[in-house]
Design a protein around this nucleic acid. Sequence first.
DNA 1: TATGAATGAGGATTCATTCAT
DNA 2: GATGAATGAATCCTCATTCAT
Lengths: 227, 227, 227, 227
Amino acid sequence: MSSKKHPEPPAPAVRRVPSQRPGPAGGKRDQNRRRRLAELCDAALALFLERGIEAVTIDEIARAAGMAKGNFYRYVEDKRDLVDALIAPVAAAIDAAMDRCEASTDAATDVAGLNAAYMRLALDLLQVYIAHRDLVRLYLQEARVPGVGARAPVAELEQRVTARTIALTRVAHEHALLAKIPPEVSALAVIGATERLLLAHLRDGIFEDEAQIATSLVRMVMEGITG
Amino acid sequence: MSSKKHPEPPAPAVRRVPSQRPGPAGGKRDQNRRRRLAELCDAALALFLERGIEAVTIDEIARAAGMAKGNFYRYVEDKRDLVDALIAPVAAAIDAAMDRCEASTDAATDVAGLNAAYMRLALDLLQVYIAHRDLVRLYLQEARVPGVGARAPVAELEQRVTARTIALTRVAHEHALLAKIPPEVSALAVIGATERLLLAHLRDGIFEDEAQIATSLVRMVMEGITG
Amino acid sequence: MSSKKHPEPPAPAVRRVPSQRPGPAGGKRDQNRRRRLAELCDAALALFLERGIEAVTIDEIARAAGMAKGNFYRYVEDKRDLVDALIAPVAAAIDAAMDRCEASTDAATDVAGLNAAYMRLALDLLQVYIAHRDLVRLYLQEARVPGVGARAPVAELEQRVTARTIALTRVAHEHALLAKIPPEVSALAVIGATERLLLAHLRDGIFEDEAQIATSLVRMVMEGITG
Amino acid sequence: MSSKKHPEPPAPAVRRVPSQRPGPAGGKRDQNRRRRLAELCDAALALFLERGIEAVTIDEIARAAGMAKGNFYRYVEDKRDLVDALIAPVAAAIDAAMDRCEASTDAATDVAGLNAAYMRLALDLLQVYIAHRDLVRLYLQEARVPGVGARAPVAELEQRVTARTIALTRVAHEHALLAKIPPEVSALAVIGATERLLLAHLRDGIFEDEAQIATSLVRMVMEGITG
DNA sequence: TATGAATGAGGATTCATTCAT
DNA sequence: GATGAATGAATCCTCATTCAT
């Protein structure tokens, strides 16, 4: 599996495809390649959601994107690279939200400031979810399987998100915003609950009303589930 | 040319891996069979946990179990079949626990009875977890990916567990044991939180103290996470 | 374990070897396809004649055709499919000859007309033989083995030829063109004698003079073999 | 395919299995092994007729004979060896009939003597057919495919039968018993016609009345098929 | 650029044959 | 003798990747 291109752990991060391309960045050429890449991403996303990243063939993706297999490699190096490109926007948005939250908590001088930072984070992540439903679903479906091969980028994102969430929770904990529960526990519990609800909604279409989920979730977080 | 698959009428279709094996059930032969199958399961489980079900080769499994590739097929029909055999004990135990809980809730005449049933379920599932840590971890890692190919049995189990949990929660909800939150929501939230914590523990070794997780989880479920 | 084959619902089932190929029918691409397929057929035919259809490996065929194993499947779905493509021209020609003969006998109003029809059939089949000596030899060699697997198309052809020949003979019989011998018997006897002679010629190179065979055959059919 | 045991052309003819066995020839031991071998032959014959020699697995044969696969090799060296044992009686009987006919023709001093010899041959062969219908059918089905692998013994028999028949016919021809047709031609024509009729009878069950076939065949040989 | 042909490594599966019990 | 477990070579088929056009 992971023999040449991606030596798994190290991840040298040499993207040769996207760089060194003719034409100015933003010119006709550049536009075109962006469009093609987007088409690839769209096609791949649909297939990945349906059958899982590993089971989908490069040929299938290319054909679903309306291009020949050989052309695939013009826009992307690998299936892994495609997954990378696919989740890049979500990863960037999440990282940005986390960055902002971290900055805010660092700068916060009182409990109110901290709370505001967390609230802001929640809203930012909500925006990500709204803007990238299918990508979020892909993340939810694939993030827990060992990050081997093409799934690596997803697993990496998951690790980063988890670690940063725990770190942020630790701050809240230190400021006594949370019950006497280890911050890792509460962080993971909230993440887990949220993710499970989103998955049920996105994959299985269980809830009609998204707002309802959010409200219930907040309430559970605040008060528990017992009557 | 013909483009459709050719049916081949004759095909005597001898069951490989037949249930009816020579020797009495429990005899030397039968024992050996079981042991070999167990070895396969053990070897496979380790590999599956490390790299994901899809990425693992039958040849690798066989070799890890100390047997030649061809021998694999004496004990199991498929990778999928192996996964089936692998999770069978957990599936059975979970189903049994759910059955018992359903029976108890059906028979319960008051709130105390209901609560006892749920508590019992929690303890039963805890036993499953204790007895099958690695299998539970496999389940947690793989259950959310679309159930295609060898992963199908896991996905099926996930669906069953989810559905039954929601059904049981609905009963609790109807008896006003829970806050005014849709039962699907609270069920999935608890499942999600629990699973995420278990995964962190089993896969990433985050918590030293398992009891701590349980306690915290219960508290969060009862009271929320805020201080 | 499960013992039955797992259906796998999704399976997008992309037709390999699709009829709809890029480029116009007759263009460069199409030409190339046909040539490659022809090369496969040629290589396969030689091997089949030498060692029998069953004993020949797909890899051998591909290599003999000067291509890599994997490429085989671009042009043909199966070994069976290849056999299908291989005998298609003969099958078509034979069927056409039979069709024509049937039409003629249907339209015939007198014995002369009937005789002309049969003579015409003989000449048509002779043309087939001349145009496809090796394929006829393949047919002769393989037609009698049970039509399992890749040999199926040959067996099917044999059945069709036999049935139609008997039907045509029956017509002749009804018009008293033949001795008081059941039409099935005389039909099969002639088929058998002819095929055996052709096989001896094509496979074992027994006769130098093809015309001699034909003449003798006709004479035997007309008068028997005794002096 | 034909790599170690049977180097195809040479055929060293070392049968190690049947020789060097404990017990006297004819004793309990010997009886037993004959019975087992016969069971193998019967089972194999049925399968061979149904699906062709090549397509049948050794495991299938053994199991159909009610023994374990490993036991197969106790009685027979190979599938080829089994085929050898299978057709041995027919081969021996045919050879004997041919031997006798050759001797008679050699000793014959007049045409009547020759005719008697041929008639005797025909009757002898008829006996063979009657005594070994299924084996004759197997021969008819398999004899024309190149004698590679397990089919070799059948192909060898075919060659011998053909050659000897032609030789005998040549004698008849030299004594002007036959029309002015090359003896190879008439020999093969009769063989071909006969074999085709037998195959139709044995495999496809076309004729109810065997005697009818024989009568018709003789008549055709003597007088041709035309009215 | 775009296409699909070509390659070959890799993985699943079967099966003849050997062996320990 | 009998059994079926074990082995590994052989074969089918797929698919990522490269290339010529």
